[in-house]
């Protein structure tokens, strides 16, 4: 069994925690040993959030080393841009084309990086950067909260594993009344890249 390492990154409140829970559970359901590490702390106060999710035959460390990440899942452009050193040469970054300006940018004291700048940073290691308008798609689906599940849909096609397994976990982890919406979001994510 080949190891697969994921980093999910974004801003507190964007749904990275649910997404990393889904991803870890899917790994377990697919028969991998899994670990997940998260820094919770101040994330509710609009800070950066990062989750490490690891699948493998036997996983020791909950944290991933630099240069080892197989898939970077960026929920926010600037946050995604911070991780090139962790991405394995030639690996993939999937990034939500969405900006949440940090305080210094709001105050006019710093500049938010342009999309090309983020892309070129990621490309120092990543072989491919997939830009996804997940926020817009989520809006069309009627709920910005499903951004993470859309991104997981995109990711699932790259990673593989039975669709049923992914969907079962997604539905198990979201509140009952949002199951249908999340299933739709997940399938929409899969179609984006297929298209």
């Amino acid at each position: 069994m080949k190891k697969i390492d994921f980093i999910l990154t974004g801003v507190g409140g964007q749904g990275t925690i649910l997404a990393s829970n889904v991803l870890t559970e899917v790994g377990l359901a697919l028969g991998y040993d899994v670990k997940k590490a998260e820094v919770l702390g101040m994330s509710q106060r609009g800070g950066t959030v990062e989750s490490h999710v690891r699948w493998g035959e036997k996983v020791y460390s909950p944290l991933i080393e630099q240069g080892e990440v197989d898939y970077l899942l960026g929920f926010e452009m600037l946050e995604a841009g911070r991780w090139p050193l962790y991405i394995k040469k030639g690996a993939m970054a999937i990034v939500n084309r969405y900006r949440i300006p940090p305080p210094a940018v709001n105050l006019g004291k710093a500049k938010y990086p342009r999309e090309e700048e983020v892309e070129s940073l990621l490309k120092t290691a990543a072989g491919r950067v997939l830009w996804i308008d997940a926020m817009k798609i989520a809006g069309d689906l009627g709920n910005p909260a499903v951004v993470g599940v859309i991104l997981l849909g995109v990711l699932s096609l790259q990673v593989g594993g039975a669709l049923d397994t992914w969907l079962e976990v997604v539905k198990r982890l979201v509140p009952a009344k949002y199951q249908e919406l999340n299933e739709k979001a997940f399938l929409t994510g899969r179609e984006i890249v297929a298209a």
Partner: peptide
């Protein structure tokens, strides 16, 4: 694992996102 100086500088220049009062 040598990081290119330009990459390191570009990363350091990214604006930080400290926690704030909601």
């Amino acid at each position: 694992e040598t990081t290119e100086v330009t990459t390191a500088a570009a990363l350091a220049a990214l604006p930080i996102r400290p926690p704030m009062l909601c």
